[in-house]
Design a protein around this nucleic acid. Structure first.
Lengths: 64, 64
DNA sequence: ACTAAATGTCAAATATATATTACATTTTGT
DNA sequence: ACAAAATGTAATATATATTTGACATTTAGT
């Protein structure tokens, strides 16, 4: 399932996928794939993304 | 770093590591290692654990 | 003290997250 | 319309999460 909340939070910080990738220390493809929803990042990467985007885990990565 | 919040939440549900492991569909060693703190589970496993323990991601897996 | 259950831990194998390289398509600015 | 930047996507390689099986230690019940 697509992660539109993450896409929105990134847009809110005016960061490209590539810029976010550099900040959190992963490849651009990894960020792209997470937003596209076809994989399952590690919790430490999720934490790094949240810190970079100023959000919480629950805001970006919770699903009902 | 040890995940004592998870250990406490599990104790609060009166579940052994083995029981929790079966509920979320992983091995007991995986649960043990997460509580012990020496690895980095995937977000989907974290979500499953939170659902099993009735908590949120932020409660169990956020770190400052 | 004894026993069973729960937990800690290790080594080797397997599954999968992530990197790298590369190219195609879409979006944005001028 | 054009160019540059951003995004989507695929193949192959590497790092690491997770499994399996096994055994040692600790904890809880009687």
């Amino acid at each position: 399932m697509k992660n539109l909340k993450m896409k929105a939070a990134r847009a809110g910080k005016d960061l490209s996928q590539d810029e976010l990738a550099r900040i959190v220390g992963v490849s651009r493809q990894t960020i792209n794939a997470i937003e596209k929803g076809d994989y399952n990042p590690t919790i430490s990467l999720c934490r790094s993304i949240c810190k970079a985007l100023g959000t919480t885990l629950d805001e970006l990565f919770w699903e009902e």
